[in-house]
Simulated assay, not measured.
Amino acid sequence: MTTGPPVPPASYWPDGGSTRPATSKPPGWAVGIMSAAAVVALIGGTVLATRDAGSGTPVAQPPPEVELPVSPPSEGPSARPSLEPSSAAPEETSEETPEASPSATATSTFAPVADVPEVCDLLPESLTSRLAPKSSSAPGVAKDGYGAKRKDCRWDQKGYHMVGGYNLSRSINVKVNAFQDHDNALEDADFMWDSMRDFSGQTREDPYNTKYGEIKEVSGLGDSAYMIYSEHTVRRTSTAWIYVVRGNVTVDIRFTGADNKGREILSDENSRPVPEAEMLKGVEEIAKEVVKGLNG
């Protein structure tokens, strides 16, 4: 049976009980009654719990809190949370990991590159004038950082190259990154290749409006190299992208083209994308010249 709080007699109030004081603090006699009621409730709850425990009817109890062991964060971008105990066996902590050095090429046969050459000097004019007619080179804006020395160069069309009523627009973009060692270069390349694998054979609708060919492996350029073709379905441009890892160096090349109807510099819905075979052949030829230049 539920009972309300004790009510004092009318004689308690100074005015005979017509108006109660504004304070909510209970009088002394009420504190005693309330304390006794709390003890009775506690004893009654214990008796009921004991009775229920013997009656065969389960009483819901809150689940115990379990504290999961947390390992200290690992260094590096690939750190992931772990539920393994943080303490390690003595034999696991007795060895120290050697620091990486610029000459560390454990899984590569190519000599490390200490600095990045001027990328605009890596491609001969005979190649750029053939693959990207009417183009001229200009250094890019790549800056050293994120564990690598970086330089880049662009070859953009500066005039009209008219064939059959179309301006054959072509451009080349080359980036070279020299990392501390081969492992870091390979990690950078793996990230780019994963993007290629994700895009391979896919068509991405608005706002990307891009259709991708299949990723292809290329041999003879370094430790590993992959390339992929893409076509923008609205602007009607096409791009061949190749990414190479060679020792402690990665090479990123984009070869872009479109046949623009009339004397148009910018592509539009009337442009023709350059066929995949032509673009992939061109970007592979560019990559061969770049790695040749890296050999000095």
Rank of each mutant, 00 (worst) to 15 (best):
E217I: 09
T250F: 11
T250R: 11
G222V: 14
G262T: 09
V245D: 00
N248K: 05
G247A: 04
S238N: 03
A258Y: 06
V218T: 13
G247N: 03
D252R: 09
V244P: 02
T239D: 10
T239A: 09
R246L: 11
I253N: 04
V234F: 10
I242F: 02
G222W: 09
V244G: 01
T250C: 05
N260T: 05
T239W: 03
H232R: 10
Y229K: 01
Y226Q: 15
D252C: 07
R236Y: 02
R236G: 04
T239F: 01
R235W: 11
I253M: 08
W241K: 14
K261V: 08
A258D: 08
T233L: 02
D259S: 13
K261R: 15
R254A: 14
R254L: 13
D259P: 05
V218K: 07
N248P: 11
N260I: 04
S224T: 15
A240D: 01
V245K: 10
V251D: 04
V245L: 03
S219G: 09
W241A: 13
S230V: 10
N260H: 06
F255W: 03
Y243P: 11
R246K: 12
G257F: 07
W241R: 12
R254W: 13
W241T: 13
E217M: 13
Y226N: 15
G262R: 07
G262W: 00
N248H: 08
T256A: 11
A225H: 03
V249W: 04
A225M: 10
S219Q: 13
G257H: 00
R236Q: 12
S219F: 12
K261T: 06
